[in-house]
Design a binder for these strands. Structure first.
Lengths: 144, 144
DNA sequence: TTAAATCATTGGAGATGTACAACTATCTGT
DNA sequence: ACAGATAGTTGTACATCTCCAATGATTTAA
């Protein structure tokens, strides 16, 4: 960062590097797809459901897809015994999708793979890592 | 971070937050797809070609796909007038794919959209942003 | 010089996602 | 009670992507 550097320019550089670090390791994506034997999209759905029960409508919104396809994906996951639909007492039109024990286990396996920090991060000096964690905490809670 | 926190635990937390920050804003993805009128995968191919000419084989490797599909994607991009194939003097079996002026412009547009830092990043105090940029620089150059 | 390997391409099978339209059951507001 | 909105589902059409097999042109290795 030079003396003439602006806040925006520094942010752009940091942002580019952040994207490279996170998106660069797309082998991780392939690894989890192979390990779970399903598409990354379905893994994302499973992980979302494992975080807590939700309606199909909510699931569709969070996956940025439409309700028909959410139905199909949940059918698939249910067919694998990973999730199940239960009645919603508050609204009998909707259904609650929740994770089964088997689904919870598989979701945890996915989280373990995806949540493993890359070597570069582990190689950081302790002070830098602590500082990074402090700043990302601030970023992650922005607006809340 | 507590006094009992390990290096690995801190790294995991930082990694999770980094992923959330970068992957959380998937609207950006939709935005660039709508703006360019092509799939994210093809946009990725175009951006890669715009960074510098390369053979189809190399393109396939970098996109983590196979050569037949790389051929198809390049056909598509060429049909849109965004890239072109030229002979490779060094090896007449292969062809070099390079970007046209129109393709360069479109790729730059994609970079502009994808490279725009999220509000949370811009909202960081100047010291934190500078510190973050310093650390991400280190991460991005790890191993080189 | 010949055999094997590599490059881009064509073709085809099938999984995966996206986008609509329409239907039933149910809820909400009047 | 009634009209309109909403939830999940079914169905269809299509774009996209992955995976595999095979071919002609060219390079590399024996």
């Amino acid at each position: 960062m030079t003396a003439h550097d602006t806040h925006a320019a520094t942010a752009e550089r940091a942002w580019g590097q952040l994207r490279e670090i996170v998106l660069g390791g797309n082998e991780r994506r392939k690894e989890v797809v192979d390990a779970l034997g399903m598409s990354f999209f379905r893994i994302k759905a499973l992980r979302r459901i494992a975080r807590g029960p939700l309606t199909l409508r909510e699931l569709a919104e969070q996956l940025l897809t439409d309700r028909p396809y959410a139905t199909l994906v949940v059918d698939d996951l249910a067919g694998r015994g990973l999730v199940e639909r239960t009645a919603n007492p508050a609204d009998r039109r909707s259904k609650i999708v929740s994770v089964t024990p088997a689904g919870k286990e598989l979701a945890a396996r996915a989280e373990r793979i995806l949540g493993t920090p890359p070597p570069a991060l582990l190689a950081l000096p302790a002070e830098d890592l602590a500082e990074l964690e402090r700043i990302t905490s601030r970023l992650a809670t922005y607006g809340s």
